[in-house]
Design a binder for these strands. Structure first.
Lengths: 229, 229
DNA sequence: TGAGATTTGTACGTATGTATA
DNA sequence: GTATACATACGTACAAATCTC
């Protein structure tokens, strides 16, 4: 950990623990630099981390102010780190098959000689309550070691352990009516309205590694945008 | 404009005009600093703007690389600037009324003695095609000068012209079935699935200034998250 | 495989500009 | 007007990751 990261982590903990009050002022940069025995530039770098994550905002000539909780709770909905943090949640594999790719998938994944795809269905639970269903396809040629066991943990972590670097994740959100296959495991009535997010996860150089259709149990999703920091 | 902003703007134009190829390398920081006659710190600040907006990414020891178009096109879907940029679009006011607030709205807006709300319905068009419908409530005590004429322009700009500072915008996205009132103006069949975004727009100090229900014509919304910059 | 060069990242100190109180 | 506090900018040094020979 670098200095600015350590300071950022500590300041975030202070905010989360309530030491700094929402809308209240923080000590100035000079003061913080003196306290942590670093230069003002380092403090500014740490504060920048807090700004990016929505913990604070500042106004020139005025000071640094602590944001209320909603600012740093809701805004992460659409970041990739969100998917990473879900590792503490339970998973239940409902299906695990190796299939021949359809021509559409073959084209999307730009497959080589091995045309097989891992195709799985996974229910994700939070405190024993199902909240989302994932249907995923991944090329066997990239992930030959993928088994049903792997699904218990984080797929993202598994990909990184293999040495792959995840580059980006395209998401398409749309409204759907829950079909039988999804409604039952999610404990929802058939025909309920719900949100579906289709992920296209890419490795470096635009290599498509995973297509996931994530069907939510609940029909809500929150986001927050902040005008200025 | 500060130096780093000018450099950032110029570099963004170079990327958008295709001078730098997607996935290709940019000149190093030293080279750029020399060319623009500024310090490396200033170049890094400019490059940071490009990173935040998704134009480039960098890797220590390696270099600075230009992202493909999708990175800086899709990712703005959920930023507030998105709403600002829509000023070039046409608007058509379908309804404009001043109403007494219901108890629920009274509570939400934390109204004073004046319990009236402006309530309007606005269709937004892109090249004469309707793409979204907005139903909005705003307190009269905050916006006494708001008229049907104002709706032709940008409401956000109008709010700022009055001297208000917009702080943040909560969004709740959900799936809906299009009702008659929305389906017809959007040229969609009644009962179509669609996405609805409810905005709660706040001024400084958590003053709620606007509630807008934005109903999309199309049932898709794109987002992109990037692992590292 | 390893050593050295290159390139980005971190950190310091200082000076000046600019908005706010 | 004055003081305060954040914002910008410069120059330097070293660390760490990567690339190359």
């Amino acid at each position: 950990m670098t200095k600015y990261q350590e300071i950022a982590t500590e300041l975030i903990n202070l905010i989360r623990s309530g030491t700094y009050r929402p809308w209240g002022a923080m000590e100035g940069e000079h003061m913080l630099a003196k306290r942590y025995q670093v230069s003002r530039a380092t403090i500014r770098k740490a504060l920048n981390v807090l700004k990016e994550q929505g913990y604070i905002h500042s106004r020139q000539g005025s000071g640094i102010y602590v944001n209320p909780e909603e600012f740093y709770q809701e805004r992460l909905v659409f970041t990739m780190s969100d998917r990473y943090r879900r590792t503490s949640l339970d998973s239940k594999a409902l299906k695990f098959k190796i299939e021949e790719a359809t021509p559409e998938f073959d084209k999307l994944f730009n497959l080589g000689s091995d045309k097989r795809l891992v195709h799985y269905l996974r229910l994700r639970l939070f405190e024993k309550n199902p909240f989302t269903m994932e249907e995923t396809w991944m090329p066997v040629e990239l992930f030959p070691s993928l088994t049903k066991e792997t699904l218990k943990g984080s797929i993202m972590k598994y990909m990184e352990e293999l040495g792959y670097v995840i580059s980006h994740d395209f998401k398409t959100i749309s409204a759907v009516v829950l079909a039988d296959q999804y409604a039952k495991p999610l404990h929802k009535p058939i025909g309920s309205l719900s949100l579906q997010i289709t992920h296209h996860v890419y490795l470096l150089k635009s290599v498509l590694a995973q297509i996931t259709i994530e069907t939510q149990g609940d029909n809500v999703m929150n986001a927050l945008s902040v005008r200025e920091q």
